[in-house]
């Protein structure tokens, strides 16, 4: 098990290298820097040039690249002048927003998707199956940002039940947090619900025809109990896989959802950084989020081992 963790973390190094090289390549290609942002829209070219020199942005890219990688090796991801924060600080400050958004979304998606998938499998090819799978497929096909706009319009403006945007720290007010996160998480959940329900159904169908389920049935267990206990247990690995992938996809989807709902998360941090050319945030932020992405996938793999001891042999 320890070996698996070490091997996987080592395997992440080239991935991180690719990501950092791509993001560095972009700094060379993409025109503009934060000096234009700081000076303001109607600043003269001379003003901007002066700020550029003040901030050391006029150094050659290779020098900056060497400095940056040197910093990363010492555990220093750099500093954002625009935010007046270190990159680590900036990302860690936004991470709870993005993580709580994706985790709540995946929880909602799993709580609905898994039972729906099991139900569909138990009534395979009858109307509950078709209804559940049809709904899952429709959810999968909706643009999440568009759904977010509709939710704001319906629950925020027309009904006035939920705030239209913003974020409240759960430590400050749990209900406030829940109200803020409900709509964005709901919009994000709908796109993840489909894959989870579909995978659950597929896996459950396969498990349901296996011998040990037939034994369980023979023991006289009712059909719902068979599904809730034995079929679900047998299908957990593929379901976990699809949830793990969903986590990665939700992190991407959160980029736009955070924008629509004015949530101060990592996605808005990074998009804002690109639009304002805040390179330390772009490079450091991407590196950190990629690492989180890798770590979550590793966590999912470790969960497999816990769920299915047989796989320990392979590992």
């Amino acid at each position: 098990m320890l070996r698996l963790i070490i091997v996987r973390l080592l395997a992440a190094v080239p991935v991180l290298l690719v990501v950092s090289l791509v993001s560095f390549g972009l700094t060379l290609l993409v025109p503009g820097d934060i000096a234009t942002e700081i000076a303001g829209p109607t600043a003269s070219t001379a003003d901007v040039e002066r700020i550029r020199v003040d901030l050391g942005l006029d150094k050659p890219p290779l020098v900056r690249m060497v400095q940056w990688y040197g910093g990363v090796l010492r555990g220093d991801l750099g500093r954002s002048v625009l935010l007046n924060q270190s990159v680590g600080e900036a990302v860690l400050q936004r991470l709870p927003v993005t993580l709580s958004l994706t985790l709540v979304a995946l929880t909602i998606a799993s709580l609905i998707g898994i039972p729906a998938g099991l139900l569909a499998a138990s009534k395979a090819r009858r109307w509950p199956d078709q209804a559940a799978m049809g709904a899952a497929l429709i959810g999968l096909s909706l643009p999440d940002f568009w759904l977010g706009l509709l939710l704001i319009w319906l629950f925020g403006v027309k009904l006035g039940w939920l705030p239209t945007g913003g974020f409240v720290d759960p430590m400050t007010s749990f209900t406030g947090w829940l109200r803020c996160i409900a709509m964005p998480a709901g919009a994000l959940a709908l796109t993840q619900l489909g894959p989870i329900a579909r995978m659950t159904r597929a896996a459950a169908l396969e498990v349901a025809s296996s011998d040990h389920i037939r034994t369980a049935r023979a023991k006289g267990l009712t059909e719902p109990r068979v599904y809730a206990r034995h079929v679900l247990a047998g299908s957990l690995v593929p379901i976990l896989t699809v949830i793990g992938i969903g986590f990665g996809l939700s992190l991407g989807g959160a980029l736009v959802i955070e924008q629509v709902f004015s949530l101060p998360g990592v996605g808005r941090l990074v998009i804002g950084a690109v639009l304002r050319r805040d390179w330390p945030i772009i490079q450091g932020g991407l590196l950190l989020t990629t690492f989180i992405f890798v770590a979550v996938n590793l966590l999912v793999d470790l969960l497999y081992l816990w769920v299915d001891p047989r796989m320990r042999e392979d590992a």
């Binding site: 080239p14 991935v15 690719v18 990501v19 791509v22 993409v30 690109v274 772009i282 991407l286 990629t290």
Partner: peptide
């Protein structure tokens, strides 16, 4: 496959914004 993993971990949206800027 490592390069593919790296590309997969890189948010396509950011790549698009950067390309559009370039």
């Amino acid at each position: 496959m490592r390069v593919m993993d790296g590309l997969m971990a890189f948010p396509g949206l950011l790549l698009a914004i950067a390309l559009a800027a370039t």
